[in-house]
Every structure is written in C-alpha cells, then in structure tokens.
C-alpha cells in the first residue's frame, strides 16, 4: 500500500524577478513502512520535495496524496492538523525548542493534539526517550545536550505522535560520522519497531547503505529509483 502518491509535482519559487523551478514534474510513490533515502547534490530539490510531502510547502502544480489525502486542496488549519497527526519531522539543525527540556520537547506535539491525558502524554514521551537512550537527560535543555543527543530528542519528538511518515532532512549533516551512524541505526530501529515510513534526504553516499530504497534527484527531476 502506498502512503505517498505524487503525480506531476512542480514547485516554483520567485527569487527576486526570476522564477526558480525547484521541482519540474516529479512522479513518485512510496510504500508504507519504507526506509527511503532521497539523494542528490545541493540545490537539486531534495528539501523542497520533503517540504511538499511534509505539508510545509505547497505545490505549484500536480497532485500529492499523503496517507490517502490530497494535500494540495487543504486549507491552513487542515494542513497544520495533517502535519501534527500524520507527519513527524527531523531537521538537519535539530530545531528543538530551547526553553523546553528533553521531556517537554518530546511531549510538545502531544500537547498540541489535546487528545491524551497528562499522564498518558508523560508515559508515551518517557517511553520514547528511553528508546532513544536519553533516560538520564530527561530534564536537560537542548543547550545542555550534544548534537547527537539533540538529534535523538528530535527523533523521539518526531515519533511521539505515532505518525504515518517521518521526514528527515539531512539528519546526519551536522553530526560526526560515528554519531551519524548511531542516528541512522536508531532511525532504522524505530522504523522496524514502529513500522513508520522514514524518508530522509542526504548527499552523503555512505548513508545510502542504510536505505531500503533510494531516489536520486537532480535539477528538480527524479533521475533514478532503486
């Protein structure tokens, strides 16, 4: 079953008086539970593709279905709700909320959902923090954590809502190779445990060995799927 179905996706940006064609007609389907890597050089459109799939950016043209819903037709409230309930994000620069500690950062998406009780939120957040190996850093703020630890918190935060898809934009780019490997192993482990679809972008060829499937993108077009 395909969790993502993209047809003829185009995305243009206005850059001053010129228009940048970031995506020029992408067709792509991604199966549920996949662990996919999108690879390509800088400026090839990897981040734009992830942003459109993650409902952060809207498409200029084409159709994008995420979890069976056509996201190009949703309004701001619906699309925000879509992000909250179906998609998790892992950023290259971690993007944790600096005024919240580890536990609060992980709890944050669940609080936004306003569905679970305080106790259930706490239980779920603590479970994930334990799974990413940060039990003893639960009360630490992001500034008190290393890069690898921050990314682990980001992974826990991305998974805490039990999303259909986790999108990771170059998750190892700001980490040393050992920590990068640990993060990828963790993501893979989570993919196995939670059966969550992981899509991550990278331009590091060494990372590819972790991916179950690879999409190569260049100049806004998919040039190869494997």
């Amino acid at each position: 079953m395909d969790i993502i179905d993209i047809k003829g996706l185009k995305k243009n940006y206005a850059l001053g008086s010129t228009t940048v064609h970031a995506l020029r007609g992408v067709d792509l389907t991604i199966a549920k539970g996949d662990f996919m890597s999108i690879i390509g050089p800088s400026g090839s459109g990897k981040t734009t593709l992830l942003n459109v799939i993650g409902c952060i950016d809207n498409a200029t043209e084409g159709s994008v279905k995420v979890s069976g819903r056509e996201i190009t037709k949703l309004n701001d409230r619906e699309i925000t709700s879509m992000r909250l309930h179906h998609i998790g994000f892992i950023f290259q620069t971690f993007n944790l909320i600096p005024v919240l500690d580890t536990l609060e950062n992980v709890e944050f998406p669940l609080l936004l959902m306003r569905k679970l009780s305080k106790q259930d939120i706490r239980k779920r957040a603590e479970k994930l923090i334990e799974e990413v190996g940060l039990r003893e850093y639960i009360k630490h703020r992001p500034a008190e954590l290393s890069g690898g630890q921050r990314q682990r918190v980001a992974i826990a935060r991305a998974l805490v809502t039990n999303p259909d898809i986790v999108l990771a934009d170059e998750p190892t780019a700001n980490l040393d190779s050992v920590t990068g490997e640990q993060i990828l192993n963790l993501m893979k482990e989570m993919n196995r445990i939670e059966n969550t679809t992981f899509i991550f972008s990278t331009h590091d060829a060494n990372v590819l060995k972790y991916a179950r499937s690879v999409v190569k993108i260049r100049d806004g077009l998919i040039v190869k799927e494997a």
Binding site: R77, T80, H85, T93, I97
Partner: peptide, 16 residues
C-alpha cells in the same frame, strides 16, 4: 523565526 517555523511544522496552529 526559525523557532516559529519549527513549531508550525510540528503542528501548532496559527492561533496558538
């Protein structure tokens, strides 16, 4: 700004 982007990406509504 980036922090606002992050919380919006995570799923915080405009009004919040």
């Amino acid at each position: 700004t980036r922090e606002i982007g992050t919380i919006r990406a995570i799923g915080m509504q405009c009004v919040d």
